[in-house]
């Protein structure tokens, strides 16, 4: 499995990344952890002429609290995300999902920015990112930009990321204090990618009614999506078994569900429902 010939350059700063992208005439491709890109290159599915390595840029690292949001540097590895105390305290569904990405070697190399910016329909982190209403902070030719995660994924490996730009960090909303969360994943037996991965953030008020529901689903559709039909069905209702079951039946409705060698569309739709139901139920006492 040998890729085509390519050049390699290590970027020194975010400005340098943008400059290198501009100079590469569309031949440039950002490499972070490389765990999505390199397999594609080895299959010669993609043959970039130049790899721009962003892994040693200090400003892409780190996690910080900013009022009601947590800002995570794009170059944070899955392992770092899984173990970071700020993330674990305020947005635990993100660390829960990061802990289930690939295997330990992949988690040591793969990054949150790459996992999202690559736009792979079977990446794990888009699900919690959707459930946490993430904003992608982007640097490009026209300076800084912010793109909300809902609408970022346009198709398999296609995103709204403008040309010659780079995701520098991701900002996640901290859910209300009564909210609980869970990420539930059905592993593809061959790859370990989610056949379906459901991230749920759920708040229940003192009357026992759902007052906050955000659900992100990845793996089953051509892109990850917010299961808004389920959210709407649940909001303001008591979370009885029947209500959850009925609402979860809508879990595939907001996605564009497909078929492949492993699972048909019908089966995947069922998995979306079952995993949504189970993820929600796991949050109730």
């Amino acid at each position: 499995m040998i890729p085509s010939k390519f050049d390699y350059v290590r970027a020194e700063s975010v400005e340098h990344v943008v400059q290198l992208l501009q100079d590469s005439d569309g031949e440039g491709k950002i490499i972070a952890g490389g765990h999505s890109l390199l397999p594609l290159m080895k299959f010669r599915v993609t043959e970039p002429g130049k790899l721009i390595d962003i892994s040693r840029i200090p400003e892409l690292k780190g996690v910080r609290l900013e009022r009601d949001r947590v800002i995570v540097g794009a170059m944070m590895t899955h392992r770092e995300v899984a173990e970071n105390p700020i993330i674990k305290e305020h947005i635990p569904v993100l660390s829960d999902a990061a802990r289930l990405v690939g295997d330990i070697q992949i988690r040591n190399r793969g990054t949150i920015g790459g996992n999202i910016a690559h736009g792979d329909a079977v990446a794990d982190l888009p699900a919690p990112a959707l459930a946490l209403d993430a904003n992608l902070i982007i640097s490009g030719e026209d300076g800084l930009d912010v793109i909300n995660i809902d609408g970022f994924f346009l198709g398999p490996l296609i995103t709204a990321l403008p040309e010659n730009s780079v995701v520098t960090s991701i900002s996640f909303e901290i859910p209300p204090s009564n909210a609980k969360s869970a990420y539930l994943k059905y592993f593809h037996p061959a790859t370990g990618y989610p056949v379906v991965g459901v991230a749920v953030v759920l708040g229940v008020n003192s009357d026992g009614l759902a007052d906050y529901v955000r659900i992100g689903i990845t793996g089953s559709g051509d892109v990850a999506y917010r299961a808004k039909s389920v959210e709407q069905e649940l909001i303001g209702k008591p979370l009885t078994e029947d209500v959850i079951t009925q609402a979860s039946k809508l879990a595939a409705d907001d996605g564009d569900i497909g078929s492949d060698l492993f699972a048909s569309e019908t089966y995947r739709r069922n998995l979306c429902s079952v995993y949504t139901r189970r993820a929600i139920s796991s949050l109730l006492d």
């Binding site: 299959f43 037996p189 061959a190 790859t191 060698l261 492993f262």
Partner: peptide, 16 residues
Amino acid sequence: LLSGSFMDYTMPKARF
């Protein structure tokens, strides 16, 4: 050949 890589061809793994 539709199952021409480990993306589609599932090998057994210890955790199974």
